[in-house]
Design a protein around this nucleic acid. Sequence first.
RNA 1: GGGUCUUUGGCAGAGUUGGUCGAAUGCACUGGUCUUGAAAACCAGCGAGGGUUAUACCUCCCAGGGUUCGAAUCCCUGAGGGCCCGCCA
Length: 415
Amino acid sequence: MIDLKLLQKDFDGTAKALMRKKVTLEVIEQLKVKNEALKVAKRAFEEAQAAQNEMSKLFGVYKREGKDIAELKAKVDTNKEKLVGLVETQREAEEALNTLVMGVPNIADADVPDGADEEENIELRKVLTPPTFSFDAKEHWELAEKNNWIDFEKGVKLAKSRFCVVQGMGARVERALINFMLDFNRERGFNEVSVPSIVNRTSLEGTGQLPKFEDDLFKIDGEELFLIPTAEVPITNLFQDEILTASELPIKLSGYTSCFRKEAGSGGRDIRGMIRQHQFHKVELVSITTPEQSEKVFEEMVSCASDLLTALELPHRVVQLCTGDLGFSAATTIDLEVWLPGQNTYREISSISNTREFQARRAKIRYKNGKKNELVHTLNGSSLAVGRTMVAIMENFQNEDGSINIPKVLEPYIK
RNA sequence: GGGUCUUUGGCAGAGUUGGUCGAAUGCACUGGUCUUGAAAACCAGCGAGGGUUAUACCUCCCAGGGUUCGAAUCCCUGAGGGCCCGCCA
């Protein structure tokens, strides 16, 4: 949630910043109007309430002194009637503002480049050189089936399209990857947590998936519960509505979960293979920091994920997202894109974001800075998406005969 | 799923004959005295959100309703937790 005070203090500057994230001027003006309307409604209510409270207190005094309360009661009753209307007005104003502001995305950092979409993202650097093959590189689904790593039909049989079954050496590599990543992250100071894969509405509102993106989520029928689209949700919300002490920050966590996404808007994209599944595994990094710490920790998270790819000998590039490609909650995002020889292109395998205080304000995560309570910064990033890492391994480590080598670092994990 | 008890500030824990309770006390925390420094001891401050230049003032004792001039305190509904029973990996 953005800081509404910014609109009061510097309307033009804030409006300009919001428009970089495609918020219309109309919405921004409505924010201001509704915010002011709420203030007026609140003041009116509070004045009447104060009078009410004062008169109620008099009852006690009168009773003790044995005075007649008839006149006072009449006054109170009149005021009470007035109060009912004022409460309603205030409630409506509150709701109007709230529905509006919950749908407004975070402001991008000033140094995030302008741009309409992913075409205008900026490549910061490349790490490792893509391999050259003396044969035509195959795509991962072909390799997966040839080596019996993945059975795509079985996934459809069990559930529906965009589900698959991983088996044999594929399943062992998958498990090895998860363990390797968690160990790697722990060495970098990210402590391991294991969290629920189902969360409530409050948690999803806290991290920004709700109310706007309900269509992307799997909802449990008859309950206000949802399958998580990313471990960012449960891990960040671990601290929801808490006041942390400065000395315990930064908190750096790493967790492995399955993730569930409806992929409602993705049409027929990546229908083949395991690039875009309804259920996939991911190891996630989440950090809770003071505002001063967040830059540094952000860099640590980017390095952590990038070094992981390097350790796995996977060529990749580091990309700074432009405003048009930034997510709802993000103030800045770095994507890591891994090289896929079969597709002859780089594909996203990790996305690391700093949401600044956007999620903290929604989820009420604060820390005690001296005497004052201040909002923390929350950061999240994929350590790596496991499925896409599998894809990358298959395509980069393929041999001419279609067999697949295993990255050296995984060997201790595959006994 | 049935029954029963319970839900208070960072934590623990008073408060349940409705008014002077946003709330005792202890711990933690912050500042100070003392000390070479620290600990201990002592003194002071210390729930959260909104509002104000600052006060005032408003809201919040799990959530939502209700009774009342007035509710942490009474009633209803729901959610979380404990225990007992049933069921089941």
